[in-house]
Design a protein around this nucleic acid. Structure first.
Lengths: 245, 245
DNA sequence: CAGTGGTCTAGACCACTTC
DNA sequence: AAGTGGTCTAGACCACTGC
């Protein structure tokens, strides 16, 4: 391969073009989550560049958590099935510092017409079909999280309450194995709100208690939004933890 | 330079040792925030390694926001004086998506004996002297943020309310120029709380309104904690924004 | 022992900034 | 034109994994 750049386009290094091609393969499901991708030498041969150039491309994709390098074994497509990725997007942790063991209960799973707000976030047309899910997560019997989830019906056809409650692991692992959808990144908007009657009942707190409201949009390859979540956390004995660099 | 590793110690690559030496120079204020560090070739000569090895060391420090690379100009020590770093640790943004113009008012600045909680976070002894600061930040005349700040008195001697209110820029730029203290990273713990009478007065909200409570510990070089903040945000028209990767 | 990723080198050349 | 960081190459060798 050789450097190609349009006369007017700004300079784009070779390794960026390699990155784009690897990304295209991921997006096209040529390699699936958990799979090993070809070795650096193989890719170097395929793209007709040196190993060092492939290396730089893979390094950056690994830094974005799209790939995982394992010395001596190979380079793998990231998956939410792996230990390290299980709670990758969960920032809630007990004030004590221990780890949570959250128990999951899905309450409902219905197909509805999307509101304009949800449609906008999922880049659908208002009124398009979406699946609406409700669940509660508990620690030691005390409900901590009440969560609503919206999914585009097209991508998640046939999703049922029974299937969700039968699944033992994280929801994002469920999406991966049942709907070939891997979540790559997410954006959260956080506010403080007061518990209304419904929330108070679900979380067993008083009406008017302070709750953390977390609205998340999650994206798969190609910056495609495929899930909206609106969670409310009881933060009396736990907190949202964030590191700033 | 050549690879040195203790018989029992685990393998440590050359570029890690270079990183450690650059970090030591930063910590020792050999190069100050805003300064250019020596060129890659100079550093390669100084440490007797190849340019590529220095490169990898600098790359990782730049990824941690300790250094900033500028093609054609050099590599610089990161500073909160720079545009890009001004609001590096501020995650609050208007729901509308615009940018904030926050007006700053410091209310008090007093030297007190630290509580055991603050002492623990700052790694001081309970009762050691700390400076306690209160401030309000407003957008369009409406108070949005009430913030308490605690600083170890040893490092921040002579800090006065007048000096703070006279300073035009971000607080972290003030620390840099007046107390040779550059903040490198921070950790935040977020909860939802109810406004008491005092908070209601400062933020002009009703008693019992929901507020976002953000407790931050900020660190300088060498993972040394040097500031604790406890902020309360009115999130009725703005939110805490977070990206998850 | 072969295969993978990880480190290190030396050298050539490119892109950007400044004089 | 000189100096900086940025890209790319080719090759040697090291560390780790699994057969």
């Amino acid at each position: 391969m050789s450097l190609i750049s349009e006369p007017t386009a700004s300079f784009s290094p070779l390794y960026e073009q390699i990155k784009a091609m690897i990304l295209a393969s991921l997006q096209a499901s040529e390699w699936l989550p958990g799979d090993a991708i070809p070795s650096e030498m193989e890719l170097a041969a395929r793209y007709a560049v040196s190993q060092g150039t492939v290396r730089k491309a893979i390094d950056e994709l690994a830094a974005q958590n799209l790939l995982v390098r394992r010395q001596g074994k190979g380079t793998f497509v990231a998956t939410h099935q792996e230990e390290d990725f299980q709670y990758r997007f969960l920032r809630l942790e007990p004030d004590s510092g221990e780890r949570f063991h959250l128990k999951n209960q899905f309450l409902s799973c219905e197909c509805i017409k999307s509101s304009s707000h949800i449609a906008k976030l999922l880049k659908l047309k208002p009124g398009d079909a979406v699946i609406h899910i409700e669940r509660v997560q508990s620690s030691d019997g005390k409900p901590i999280v009440f969560e609503e989830i919206w999914l585009p019906e097209g991508r998640f056809q046939g999703l049922s309450l029974e299937a969700l409650n039968a699944w033992p692991g994280p929801v994002y692992a469920f999406y991966e194995s049942h709907y070939a959808t891997h979540m790559v990144r997410a954006e959260e908007k956080i506010k403080a709100v007061l518990a209304d009657e419904s929330l108070a009942r679900h979380l067993r707190v008083l009406v008017g208690a302070a709750l953390l409201s977390v609205e998340r949009v999650a994206f798969t390859y190609g910056n495609k939004p495929v899930e909206v979540r609106h969670a409310r956390y009881d933060t009396s004995k736990q907190h949202y933890d964030n590191k700033l660099n």
